[in-house]
């Protein structure tokens, strides 16, 4: 344990480099056009390829094209919550001010993405499985994730003192992270109506490369889009908090004038 304090301190200082709002705003403003542009490019390329040029599946026919929306949103729903949990850790341990603001902004975007994932899954399930919804382990655990997002959104705004809201929401985000491995492995641990993952870290994908390419592109594009929207909201949030502090503390404004 002798090494850990220095490691903790070093990790803290690494993240605190970007705690300075001015530095964050400058970096984010420079990053924003690249993120947005690449996100648009890859998303249009991936989804256009998937919708118009990728082959139809041998058993699902054209319905397989829903995959190019469903799978990226499903992955982002989970990774967005992982980001929320990371913000919670940074907030609880290092009291990082930007992590709290980021948690406020990631929540609604993640919830929207999870809602799209559930809705497109439903739209895919009806023609293929013959049902809009079943209570199997994969679908239920993703629904739980959606409610965790909603709880986080409500909790972080529930207190008059924002610091208390940040603390409570950070605890919820970390506790809710238990759901992430359950989502990932639900299709292996239990039998489900949902099929197992086609793309795994350990094995070769069980998907034709003519479908894998557009899927990869749209995954990349939609992830970049998620990042671009979160960064834009975070920039707005940092500016709004500065506006608030300027308004509530007019002395500083007088000083500056």
């Amino acid at each position: 344990m002798t090494a850990s304090p220095s490691l903790v301190a070093r990790t803290g200082s690494l993240f605190h480099r970007y705690a300075n709002p001015g530095r964050f705003l400058r970096l984010a403003a420079r990053l924003q056009p690249w993120l947005t542009g690449l996100a648009l490019l890859f998303t249009f390329a991936g989804l256009g390829w998937g919708l118009f040029f990728a082959p139809a599946d041998w058993q699902q026919g054209d319905s397989v094209r829903i995959m190019y929306v469903h799978v990226p949103t499903a992955i982002l729903a989970s990774s967005g919550y992982a980001a929320l949990a990371l913000c919670g850790l940074l907030s609880l341990v290092w009291r990082h001010p930007l992590a709290d603001l980021a948690a406020v902004e990631i929540g609604p975007v993640g919830a929207c993405i999870t809602a799209v994932c559930l809705a497109t899954g439903s739209l895919w399930g009806k023609p293929m499985w013959g049902t809009w919804w079943v209570w199997d382990a994969r679908l239920t655990s993703v629904l739980v994730l959606f409610f965790l997002y909603l709880g986080h959104i409500a909790l972080i705004r529930a207190f008059d003192d924002p610091q208390r809201g940040y603390r409570a929401a950070a605890i919820l985000a970390l506790a809710g992270a238990v759901d992430l491995p359950i989502i990932k492995f639900s299709v292996q641990w239990w039998n489900t109506l949902h099929q197992p993952d086609s793309i795994t870290l350990t094995g070769a994908p069980t998907m034709s490369s003519s479908m894998l390419w557009p899927l990869g592109l749209s995954m990349l594009g939609i992830s970049l889009g998620f990042a671009a929207i979160v960064i834009a909201r975070l920039r707005a949030a940092v500016m709004e908090s500065r506006v608030r502090s300027l308004l509530s503390n007019p002395r500083r404004r007088g000083d500056a004038a």
């Binding site: 919708l51 829903i66 799209v116 809705a119 739209l123 895919w124 889009g225």
Partner: peptide, 17 residues
């Protein structure tokens, strides 16, 4: 044809984005 389901999925995503 499952076209309505496909278009609904893409439309939903586009609307949200």
């Amino acid at each position: 044809t499952h076209l309505p389901y496909i278009l609904a999925s893409y439309g939903l995503f586009a609307g949200l984005a």
